[in-house]
C-alpha cells in the first residue's frame, strides 16, 4: 500500500516536474512579483540634519590631517559614488584593502562594508573615520575641530539641540546618505508598467539576468546588497585568484565562522555600469569580465557573448536620477569587450 502510494506520488512528481520544465521559458512578467523592486523616491529623513551631513560629507576635517573627506572615495558627480580605483586611498596615500563601493543607495543595503561589519550607515561612518587606511582620525579630534567652527556649532545646536558630539556627526552623515537615492530609472519605469521604458534588447537582457540565475543573489530594490554569498560556489575563486589580504576572507573576519569564509555582501548592481572596477578586490575592470567570472564561479554556466552583451544592456537601464539628473551614461563603454574566445586565448 505504502509502496503503491509512493510510486503514485513519484509519477505525479515526474509529471509536475515535466510541466514545470515545459513552462519555465515562457512565463509572463508579473511586475508585483519581480525579484527587482523599485527604489523609493525618498526615505524618512530630516532635511536640516541631512544638510549638515552633506556639509560634513565634503569636509576634510573629518580626516586626521584634514586631507580627505568622505567624498574623496565617494565621488558623487562623476564616479557613481565611488572612486574608480581598484583599492581606495586614505590619508597620506595609504592604500585600502578593498574596492570602495558606491555610496548611492547604500541606505538600501542591509549592512555596510563588503563583510557587512556595519549594521548601519552610522556604524559605517564610525569605521571609515577611524580606519587607519582611511581617515585615521579619532572622534575627540573631529569633535574638537568641528566645535571650533561656529557655523557647525550653530547648525548642530539648531537641529540637534545639543552641542557637537560623535553620535550627532555620524547621524548627520548617515542622514545625508539616506538622501543619496537614485530612483526613476528607466527600468523602474518598466517595472511600473511602461513597456516602452526599456527596449527589446534590454528586456532580453533582464530575462537572461533572471534565467542565468543572477537574480538569485542580485535582487530586491538595490539589485543586491541584502545578503551574503560565498565567492566561488562552484569552482574555487581563490585558487585562481591568490588571497591578497585578510579582507579576502570576507565575512569570516566578522563572525569567525568557517562557513563565512570568502563570503561577501552581494553588491548592488544599481550603478554597476558607473563603478568599475569590480568585485571586493577591484580585480575586474570590465562588466563583461565580471559577468563571466560570476557565471563561472557562482553559476557554473557559460554565458555566450551576446547574452553578456544583453545583460550589460539591461544593467544600463538601472541607474536612476540624482538631484533630478539621470545618472545613466550616454555611452555604453561596457559593451566594448573582447569576445570570450579572445580572452581565453590571451
Amino acid at each position: 500500500m505504502a509502496k503503491e502510494t509512493a510510486r503514485m506520488i513519484t509519477r505525479l512528481a515526474a509529471a509536475i516536474g515535466s510541466l514545470y520544465i515545459a513552462m519555465s521559458p515562457v512565463y509572463a512578467l508579473d511586475f508585483l512579483h519581480e525579484p527587482i523592486k523599485r527604489i523609493p523616491q525618498t526615505l524618512d529623513v530630516s532635511p536640516d540634519k541631512a544638510a549638515i551631513g552633506k556639509k560634513l560629507f565634503f569636509d576634510p576635517r573629518l580626516s586626521v590631517d584634514n586631507s580627505i573627506s568622505c567624498a574623496h572615495c565617494h565621488n558623487l558627480d562623476e564616479k557613481g559614488g565611488a572612486d574608480a580605483l581598484r583599492h581606495s586611498f586614505g590619508v597620506q596615500g595609504r592604500e585600502g584593502l578593498v574596492n570602495a563601493p558606491t555610496v548611492f543607495n547604500s541606505a538600501l543595503n542591509s549592512t555596510q562594508f563588503w563583510d557587512g561589519r556595519a549594521k548601519s550607515l552610522e556604524d559605517q561612518v564610525d569605521g571609515s573615520v577611524q580606519a587607519h587606511a582611511e581617515m585615521a582620525s579619532t572622534w575627540p579630534q573631529v569633535v574638537e575641530k568641528l566645535r571650533a567652527d561656529a557655523e557647525y556649532r550653530r547648525l548642530f545646536l539648531r537641529s540637534y539641540k545639543t552641542d557637537i558630539n560623535p553620535a550627532n556627526i555620524k547621524h548627520a552623515i548617515a542622514e545625508f546618505e539616506r538622501t543619496l537615492l537614485t530612483p526613476n530609472s528607466r527600468f523602474e519605469r518598466y517595472l511600473k508598467g511602461d513597456e516602452n521604458a526599456i527596449n527589446a534588447e534590454e528586456k532580453d537582457g533582464y530575462r537572461l539576468f533572471k534565467s542565468y540565475g543572477c537574480v538569485a543573489c542580485h535582487q530586491g530594490r538595490n539589485v543586491g546588497g541584502n545578503m551574503f554569498q560565498v565567492l566561488g560556489v562552484m569552482g574555487d575563486y581563490f585558487s585562481d585568484h591568490k588571497v591578497e589580504n585578510k579582507a579576502d576572507y570576507g565575512r569570516f573576519n566578522v563572525t569567525g565562522r568557517q562557513e563565512d569564509k570568502y563570503r561577501f555582501k552581494v553588491p548592488s548592481l544599481r550603478l554597476a555600469v558607473l563603478t568599475a572596477p569590480y568585485l571586493h578586490d577591484g580585480s575586474h575592470t570590465s562588466l563583461a569580465e565580471t559577468i563571466r567570472t560570476m557565471a563561472k564561479y557562482q553559476l557554473v554556466r557559460n554565458i555566450p557573448d551576446e547574452d553578456v552583451r544583453s545583460i550589460i544592456h539591461f544593467l544600463y537601464t538601472l541607474p536612476g536620477e540624482y538631484e533630478g539628473k539621470s545618472l545613466e551614461p550616454v555611452t555604453r563603454e561596457h559593451l566594448n569587450f573582447l569576445p570570450e574566445n579572445k580572452v581565453a586565448s590571451q
Binding site: S24, G213, A216, N226, M227, V230
Partner: peptide, 20 residues
C-alpha cells in the same frame, strides 16, 4: 535567514537550471 538566502540562491539557480 542569511544561510537560507545564500544557500537557496545557489540551490535555486542550479535547480532552476537543471531542467533546462
Amino acid at each position: 535567514t542569511n544561510e537560507f538566502k545564500a544557500s537557496f540562491a545557489i540551490f535555486s539557480s542550479s535547480a532552476d537550471y537543471l531542467p533546462t
